[in-house]
Design a binder for these strands. Structure first.
Lengths: 276, 276
DNA sequence: CAGGGTTTGGAATATCTGTTCCATTTTCAT
DNA sequence: ATGAAAATGGAACAGATATTCCAAACCCTG
C-alpha cells in the first residue's frame, strides 16, 4: 500500500481502478463500480452523500482511497475534480504525472506539453461557446465596411498584425492602427461611419487599445470587439463582441482560440466582401 | 434582497451577475469579475481558497452570494457546480466527439469549424512529432545567447512579434528584426557569435527572411529555424531546426502549432536563462 | 467639514466533513 | 466445525469550512 505511484490524472486513475477492482473486497468493489459510473458525483459530492448513494459506509470510501495508495478520500477526490477543472496542470503536477512513464526527457518538454494542452482546451471551449449568429453578424458588419481599422496592442498585436497581413493578401482594405511612431490617434481619426473597427484586448486591458476603440465609437464607427469578459472596457463601446477565454499554462495565456477566431473573421469577411 | 428569483442554472446566474455587477460595491464587483472568469474555481474551491485567489476577504464571497439573493455562498456554489455536472464530457472526450458532427448554422460557422479543426490537427501532429531532445538543445542554445535576434516576416511576423513581446516581459534580451524602415540588414549586422538567431519561415519562403538568416549564419551566429519542410532554404543555414506542419483550411494554414512552439521556446528559454 | 449610512476587514463561531477507531460480523483455511 | 484473519458498520473525533458579527474605514450628502 501507498506505493507512491498514485495517478494524479483521471485517465491513469481510471486504469488503476479497472485493474484492481476484481481483487478488492466486496464493499470496495462496490465503491469502484460506483466511482467509474458516477465520476461527477465523486468529484462534487461529500463523503456522506456519496456513501449514501453508493449504499456503503463513509469509511468504505476512505478505505477504498487508501487501498489505491492515496492518503484519504480527499486526495482521490482531487483527481476526480481535475477531470472537471478547466485548468492545465502546472509544472510540478506535470512532473508528478510523468513519473514512471519513463519519457521524462527534459523540462522544456513539459512546458511544450502544457502549452499545447492549453491551446487544445481553449479551442475546444470556444468551439462550444461561440454563437454562430453572432459570428455571422460580425462578418456582415465588417464586410460592409470601406476600410477596417484593426486595433490590437501588446499581447494582441500578433493577432491584429496577422489580420492586417491576411486582409492585405485578400484585397480587403484595412489599416493596422499600431503604436509605432505614435501616430495611432491620427490614423484612427480618418475613420468614418462607413468604416468599421476591430478591437482586440485582454486583461489587463491596454489603455491605448480602449482609448482608440472609444475614439472610433465616438466617430460613429461600428466596432467589433474580441475580449475575455463581459466586464471588459471594450464591451460598452462595441457594437458586437466575442468572449474568448483562453486556458493558461503557468500564467501564460494560449492565443490559439483567439487566432482561430481571427482567421475565421478574416477569411469569412473577405469571401463575403467579394460576393456582395 | 432574497428576491426569490435566484437562478438555479448557470446561464441565468451569469446573466444576473453581468446585469447587477456595475451597481455593486467595489469588492463585490471584484468578486463578480473573478467568478465569471474562473467559474471552475468557484465550483470546486473553498471559500478560503477562492477568496485568496480573488484577493478578497472570505466574507466578501458570502456577501456577494447574498446580494444576488442566495442564502449563502454554498447555495451559489451549487449553481456553479451544476454547470460542471451538465457538461457531460471532459475535454479529451469532447475533442474526439467533435470530429465530424457539429451543427453548422451559417457559412462563417463553417469557416470557423474548418479553422479550429485545422488548429487542433496541427497541434496534435506536432505533439506527436516533436523531438524533446531537439527542443532541449534549442532552448539551451537560445538561453546561452546574449541577445536573441528574431526573424519572421509576413505570415510569420505574428509569431516573431509575439516572442519579442514575451521575451521583453520576461527580461530576455532580444531584437525583432522587422522590415519597417528597411533597416533590417543593418540591425542584423550587429549580431556576434555570442548571440543567437531564431528564424521562422514557411512556403513560399520570404526571401528577406532567408537572406537575413544567412547573414547571421555568415557572422557565425547560431540560428534556430522553425520551418515546414526539410527542403526549406532555412535548413542548410540553421544549427538546429524544427519541422512544423500546419494543417490548412481553404489554403490558409493554421498557425496554432507554430504559436504553441513559439510560446514554449519563449518560456523555456526565459526559465533556463534565469537559472543560469 | 461634519455626520449619516454604507462598505470592508478580520476575528469568532457554529456547522459540517473527512477520518479514525473499535466492536462485530464475515470469510476461509485447516 | 473452529479459530484466526480480514472486512465491515457505525459512532466518536479532530479538523476544516461557511457564516456571522462588529468595529474600523470609507463615501457621500448637506
Amino acid at each position: 500500500m501507498t506505493k507512491s505511484n498514485q495517478p494524479r490524472d483521471f485517465a491513469g486513475l481510471r486504469n488503476l481502478i479497472v485493474a484492481r477492482a476484481q481483487d478488492l473486497p466486496r464493499r470496495l468493489t462496490q465503491v469502484a463500480t460506483y466511482a467509474l459510473q458516477n465520476p461527477d458525483e465523486i468529484a462534487l459530492g461529500t463523503v456522506a452523500s456519496i456513501a449514501q448513494q453508493a449504499d456503503v459506509q463513509p469509511s468504505a470510501l476512505v478505505r477504498f482511497s487508501q487501498s489505491l495508495g492515496y492518503q484519504g478520500f480527499s486526495e482521490l477526490q482531487e483527481v476526480f475534480r481535475s477531470r472537471l477543472r478547466d485548468r492545465v496542470l502546472n509544472y510540478d503536477e506535470r512532473l508528478a504525472q510523468l513519473r514512471g512513464h519513463s519519457q521524462i526527457v527534459g523540462t522544456s518538454a513539459l512546458v511544450f506539453d502544457g502549452f499545447t494542452e492549453a491551446a487544445q482546451k481553449s479551442i475546444a471551449s470556444l468551439r462550444e461557446k461561440l454563437d454562430p449568429q453572432q459570428l455571422e453578424r460580425a462578418v456582415e458588419l465588417l464586410a460592409g465596411a470601406e476600410t477596417i481599422y484593426l486595433i490590437g496592442l501588446r499581447r494582441s498585436f500578433p493577432i491584429s498584425s496577422y489580420m492586417a497581413y491576411a486582409f492585405g493578401k485578400l484585397g480587403v482594405r484595412n489599416v493596422l492602427v499600431d503604436a509605432t511612431g505614435g501616430l495611432a490617434a491620427e490614423v484612427a481619426s480618418f475613420a468614418s461611419h462607413k468604416d468599421a473597427g476591430l478591437a482586440i484586448s485582454f486583461t489587463p486591458y491596454a489603455s491605448e487599445t480602449v482609448a482608440l476603440a472609444q475614439q472610433l465609437a465616438q466617430r460613429e464607427v461600428p466596432v467589433v470587439a474580441i475580449t475575455d469578459s463581459p466586464f471588459s472596457p471594450l464591451v460598452p463601446i462595441a457594437r458586437l463582441w466575442f468572449e474568448v477565454q483562453e486556458s493558461n499554462f503557468e500564467g501564460f495565456r494560449s492565443m490559439a482560440a483567439t487566432l482561430s477566431l481571427a482567421m475565421t473573421l478574416t477569411v469569412a469577411v473577405a469571401e463575403r466582401a467579394r460576393k456582395g
